[in-house]
């Protein structure tokens, strides 16, 4: 029982990471209908920035906030410089840009920070497990952080004027222009937010998996699976999907198939769901009368 509860809690902790990255993917997908393959590399790059800031002696939380701000600016910059000229380009041309972006980040990281595996500090006490061994300090802390981020993002999109404008720009760019929304900047802001969310996910997972240029590769796959499971065009669904994948992965890995096959298990379940519901569990079916 204790073991089950522990696997569940651990699943929620990693699920929060998947959910954050899934949300970042969906935010960009919703407004551009492209998947940002470089999302994982961008997050890893941000984590290296955090490590650099910590190594020069900044306190953890200052480095944390600075990393978020730098990542946000980086996301905005990438959209304005690399993707704005691509707005009317073909799907393949866009895929090309994303792959290019991915390679640029991967090589830049290898070159600047080298390919060796690095330890990344956790801001949370992780020496002695809490709640009678149920959860480690880092699991608890990182779950709180990811839940906090998801909550803030929800409140931003649901209750602020800027959040509403960003949603409007994603749904209907031409109508948005007609009410005066600067659609191009909304896209760039979306990129900034996605990069910032990815950076937080990177900083939260790095103490668990160690930092190296491919750190986010597996996580991006799980996050993508979560997004597909929940509905690639539904941010809330993608978040739930991310948590579900985390839990399935942990429970399945512990009780059903062993750790080697847990990715296969997670993907298998998702394929089954998609066969039944192609738009995902919570995929948006736009209600409209024509």
């Amino acid at each position: 029982m204790q073991g089950l509860a522990h696997q569940l809690v651990a699943g929620i902790a990693t699920g929060g990471i998947y959910a954050s990255v899934a949300l970042a993917l969906v935010m960009i997908y919703q407004s551009t209908h492209h998947l940002n393959f470089a999302q994982g590399e961008m997050a890893t790059f941000s984590t290296y920035i955090a490590l650099t800031l910590i190594n020069v002696g900044l306190p953890y939380w200052i480095a944390f906030v600075l990393t978020i701000l730098i990542s946000f600016a980086m996301g905005v910059f990438i959209e304005r410089v690399m993707l704005k000229p691509m707005h009317n380009a073909s799907v393949l041309a866009n895929v090309g840009v994303f792959i290019g972006l991915l390679l640029v980040f991967r090589n830049a990281m290898g070159w600047i920070f080298d390919y060796t595996i690095k330890a990344f500090p956790s801001p949370f006490e992780s020496d002695h497990p809490l709640l009678g061994g149920l959860i480690s300090g880092h699991e608890l802390g990182s779950t709180a952080v990811t839940l906090g981020v998801l909550g803030i993002v929800y409140v931003f999109f649901r209750f602020t004027k800027l959040g509403l404008a960003m949603r409007a720009a994603a749904f209907n760019a031409s109508s948005s222009r007609l009410v005066g929304i600067r659609v191009g900047w909304m896209l760039a802001l979306g990129w900034g937010l996605a990069a910032a969310i990815g950076a937080i996910a990177g900083m939260m997972i790095a103490p668990v998996v160690f930092l190296e240029p491919n750190m986010m590769l597996g996580i991006l796959l799980y996050a993508f699976a979560g997004a597909l499971l929940g509905g690639i065009d539904n941010p809330g669904g993608a978040v739930i999907g991310g948590f579900a994948v985390g839990i399935i992965e942990n429970l399945g890995g512990a009780y059903l198939v062993g750790t080697e096959l847990k990715l296969t298990l997670a993907l298998g379940i998702i394929i089954c769901v998609l066969l039944v519901k192609p738009s995902g569990l919570f995929g948006r079916v736009v209600q409209s009368r024509v």
């Binding site: 004027k161 509403l164 409007a168 209907n172 109508s175 736009v286």
Partner: peptide, 15 residues
């Protein structure tokens, strides 16, 4: 040119 996915209230606010 309305926002089909959004509510009437949100359409007003966007206007």
């Amino acid at each position: 040119g309305t926002f089909m996915e959004l509510t009437v209230e949100e359409n007003f606010k966007l206007g």
